[in-house]
């Protein structure tokens, strides 16, 4: 016998899932919750083997419920029910300790399979996700290696070059046909962006980057 708790705020959806679960002889639904806080309390009281948890449940977000359950009730395995097939949601859920992730537009077979697999101590992803998982999860979400110098605008880059050569704001302004005040603003902006405090910092930075010769 596999004991199951169901946390889902959407009434119609809950009825649908109950229908699916009721069809299995060895499944026993031990309780229902309509929000995240109730869900946590339900697990504390009934200690089910499986918690079917809606990701977008109100009052306490599904991800937070998973986090708490894994910490306080690791014997209950959580399967996320979600409308979101997007990788980031799946990853977040798994990272927070969910053992399964089932799309709500799955088939009845899929849901039953998920419960059996997770109860058996393995992880489960809906087939649509499992295929994508191969490509999706190995990819690193963006490269965290941006060099702030890259973010200077063309204008700021010109001002930087001239400032590194020791030109005053007035000279920079004259060279670029802009007002001294604008030149001063560009200079202040680029110093801030690059976290430079002084002209010396600026020159040192420029030399290190090979923008001017040492």
């Amino acid at each position: 016998m596999i004991t199951i708790a169901l946390a889902e705020d959407h009434h119609v959806v809950r009825q649908g899932f109950k229908l699916v679960l009721a069809a299995e002889q060895d499944f026993k639904l031990v309780g229902e919750a309509a929000d995240g806080l109730e869900a946590v309390k339900l697990v504390e009281e009934k200690k089910p083997a499986i918690m079917l948890l809606d990701l977008m449940i109100p009052r306490l977000h599904g991800l937070e419920v998973v986090r708490q359950l894994r910490r306080d009730h690791p014997q209950t395995k959580v399967i996320i029910l979600s409308m979101h097939a997007d990788e980031p949601y799946v990853m977040e859920a798994l990272r927070n300790g969910a053992c399964g992730y089932v799309l709500k537009d799955c088939t009845a077979v899929d849901l039953v399979q998920a419960v059996r697999t997770v109860a058996g101590g393995r992880r489960y992803l809906s087939p649509a996700l499992a295929e994508r998982a191969l490509t999706g999860y190995v990819e690193h979400p963006g490269a965290s290696d941006l060099d702030v110098y890259e973010t200077l605008t063309n204008r700021e880059r010109l001002v930087f070059q001239l400032a590194a050569e020791g030109k005053t704001s007035a000279e920079i302004a004259a060279a670029l046909f802009i007002s001294p005040r604008t030149a001063e603003t560009h200079r202040a902006n680029l110093m801030r962006k690059l976290s430079l405090r002084s002209q010396t910092d600026l020159v040192r930075f420029a030399i290190r980057r090979g923008i001017i010769a040492a």
Binding site: H10, V13, G16, F17, D105
Partner: peptide
């Protein structure tokens, strides 16, 4: 969700 449930 309602439509999803309808399907189920």
């Amino acid at each position: 969700q309602t439509v999803t449930c309808l399907k189920l």
